[in-house]
């Protein structure tokens, strides 16, 4: 009898152990996910009962509200910019700082600093630096260069946010690449050196392929993170001037919390979800095959 009890207990035990975790994920991750897709077909303001509207919210997003398209375009532009500059800069820094010297260790620590600080702080400090009467313009005027309007011009607002994002993240991504640069077997590079392969050739034929799994990881992480950009935009520009620096998540946020258009917000959220899903699948399908794994 006691034996049987023990066995039932043993069967149930693992489920009891994972129950809190799984229940929390079900309530706070999976239910909201499905609820969002469901809500995207309704008109809902949390005060009056929701009303089924079919595809109308999506129609509104793409054909009526021009803001959404603007936010989408900006997000794509921002993401492309971050991918190109972040990855190439991280790669340059990783190769440049690869030797284990104390100078390099210090540089790495300085570069890493912004990554662990709140985006809020980074955004506010740069807002101050990029102020019309801030330090950046003062430095420009020392060199007799014209002052820039940074966050206050629709031409440079999104670009300024991009600069801040890269400044904050590049140290972290360089560090990830650095650990793989160090793990390239030195014999490979020596062999290339003996064969008189030029530096460029060695880079493209050995270093880059050896780093490809890590670069692939960076590509996915950076894409997903960039599509989620919000903090810097809300703090530094509020999406402006006009909607020149508006982005997807900020759009989703405003529809829900400023205008109580929860259905529209959910539809925009569903689009974001689809984009992230498609990007991940494409990356794994196309690039996954060409990535060299050791």
């Amino acid at each position: 009898m006691k034996h049987k009890q023990f066995r039932i207990g043993k069967l149930v035990l693992p489920y009891v152990m994972i129950l809190p975790a799984v229940a929390l994920l079900a309530v706070f991750t999976f239910y909201p996910l499905f609820n969002m897709v469901y809500l995207s077909f309704f008109k809902y303001d949390m005060l009056t009962p929701k009303k089924f509207v079919g595809w109308d919210n999506y129609y509104q997003l793409f054909f009526v509200n021009i803001d959404f398209i603007a936010a989408l375009k900006n997000t794509v532009f921002y993401t492309l910019g971050v991918i190109v500059f972040m990855i190439s800069l991280a790669l340059i820094f990783a190769l440049w700082l690869q030797r284990s010297t104390w100078v390099n260790a210090i540089v790495q620590r300085f570069m890493f600093l912004p990554h662990i600080c709140a985006m809020l702080t980074v955004a506010m400090v740069f807002q101050w630096l990029m102020d019309d009467r801030g330090l950046f313009n003062a430095v420009l005027s020392v060199f007799n260069l014209p002052a820039l309007r940074w966050l206050n011009s629709s031409h440079t607002a999104l670009l300024s946010i991009l600069i801040v994002a890269i400044w904050k993240g590049v140290g972290y991504y360089a560090l990830i690449l650095l650990s793989s640069v160090k793990s390239i077997p030195p014999e490979l590079l020596e062999a290339a050196d003996l064969d008189d392969a030029g530096k460029l050739r060695t880079f493209f034929k050995i270093t880059l392929p050896m780093l490809s799994p890590q670069l692939f990881f960076l590509l996915i992480t950076i894409t997903i993170n960039s599509f989620k950009v919000f903090d810097a935009v809300r703090i530094m520009t509020g999406g402006g001037p006009g909607n020149s620096s508006d982005v997807l998540v900020f759009y989703i946020y405003r529809q829900a919390f400023n205008y109580s258009k929860y259905g529209l917000s959910a539809a925009a959220g569903t689009i974001l979800l689809l984009i992230l899903l498609v990007m991940t699948v494409i990356y794994f399908r196309i690039l996954g095959k060409r990535v060299h794994y050791q």
């Binding site: 969002m36 959910a266 974001l272």
Partner: peptide
Amino acid sequence: MKGVLFGAVMVAFMVPTQITFVSVFQM
């Protein structure tokens, strides 16, 4: 169901809070 449940945990890790916040707020 160990595999399925662990898979669910991994998927949950990929779902950004920027997608779930409206429903959680309503809750």
